[in-house]
């Protein structure tokens, strides 16, 4: 029982940074922009948030700093991809390399120095319910933020005019431009939002999940977030499902390592990456599902006018 609860809550916590980053990337991709720099933006967000938390500021301030840093780093990508019409694959890879190097540089003083872990938010009555309370209402505040943001993004994308415009731009930027929508500014907002969410995901890793700063601590989670968006066929609910699936794989392999069961620890550690490949294969076999929600202009440069 104890172990089951630990696995369930661990899964939710492990899914949280993926949910942040993948939902941000989903918004950017729905506007037609593919930013492969998620890993770099997460690392920038993580090291910034850790700096702020290490200086003694509260969780909200540190997380906010991660958000701002992630958004700022996405500007680098925005200029390349949106103004200078660079190849979006290459621009994203540049951001990942830059973010990895810069974050390692900025975090050079923290030799895995720990900070105080974040206290779980105690909700009166609810948190005290046996079992159910511990599974549903015993998390740090950022976990709830992730799920609230998930709901808001879903609502924004599919129930508001702003979301409709965003999706039209992702589908056909020329038509959107001809109707009078400002494609580049709106795509900028989407890219910035993606960066902010990646920064928040990184911040969560550094100040709540681990909580410490280690070079390259995201360990591919930015790329897994990118894979989740493909796996989800650009649909939010499936992003959530994917994030929980991956959180679960990660927690299960950690538990197996902790118990000393199964093969050598390196093989267990490889499971999340192999699982990513497996789900990508499974989803790409079904091309019809992929096509329905695929933003048709994804990764194609767009220049208004002319």
């Amino acid at each position: 029982m104890e172990i089951a609860i630990a696995i369930i809550t661990g899964t939710v916590v492990a899914a949280t940074p993926l949910l942040f980053a993948a939902m941000g990337e989903l918004v950017a991709e729905r506007s037609g922009v593919l930013n492969l720099g998620v890993e770099g933006m997460m690392l920038i967000g993580a090291v910034t948030a850790f700096h702020v938390a290490f200086a003694g500021y509260p969780l909200a301030v540190a997380a906010g700093a991660g958000v701002l840093a992630g958004a700022a780093s996405s500007l680098v990508f925005g200029v390349l991809a949106l103004n200078l019409l660079a190849n979006q694959y290459a621009a994203g890879i540049a951001l990942t390399i830059l973010g990895g190097g810069l974050s390692a540089f900025l975090g050079r003083e923290f030799g895995a120095a720990p900070i105080d872990p974040v206290e779980a938010l105690h909700i009166p009555v609810l948190s005290d319910i046996p079992v159910v309370g511990r599974i549903l209402f015993d998390y740090d505040p950022l976990v709830y933020v992730a799920f609230i943001l998930f709901g808001l993004i879903w609502w924004m994308l599919f129930r508001t005019k702003a979301g409709l415009v965003l999706r039209i731009i992702g589908e056909n930027p020329q038509a959107a431009h001809d109707i009078g929508f400002k494609v580049i500014p709106i795509r900028y907002l989407a890219v910035l939002f993606g960066g902010a969410m990646a920064g928040l995901g990184g911040a969560y890793l550094a100040i709540a999940y681990t909580p410490l700063w280690v070079e390259n601590m995201t360990a591919g989670r930015g790329w897994i977030a990118l894979a989740l968006v493909v796996f989800a066929s650009w649909r939010p609910l499936r992003v959530l499902l994917g994030a929980i699936l991956f959180g679960g794989v990660n927690i299960l392999q950690l538990h197996a390592q902790g118990q000393g069961i199964g093969p050598a620890s390196e093989f267990l550690s490889a499971l999340p990456y192999l699982a990513t490949i497996l789900v990508l294969v499974l989803i790409s076999r079904n091309r019809q599902t992929q096509k329905v929600n695929f933003p048709a202009s994804l990764a194609k440069p767009f220049r208004p006018g002319h």
Partner: peptide, 17 residues
């Protein structure tokens, strides 16, 4: 040593620009 990677990233960034 992380400076190397920072400059590598910057180099690719400026090239694409």
């Amino acid at each position: 040593a992380a400076l190397t990677r920072t400059f590598q990233g910057a180099l690719l960034f400026f090239l694409l620009a």
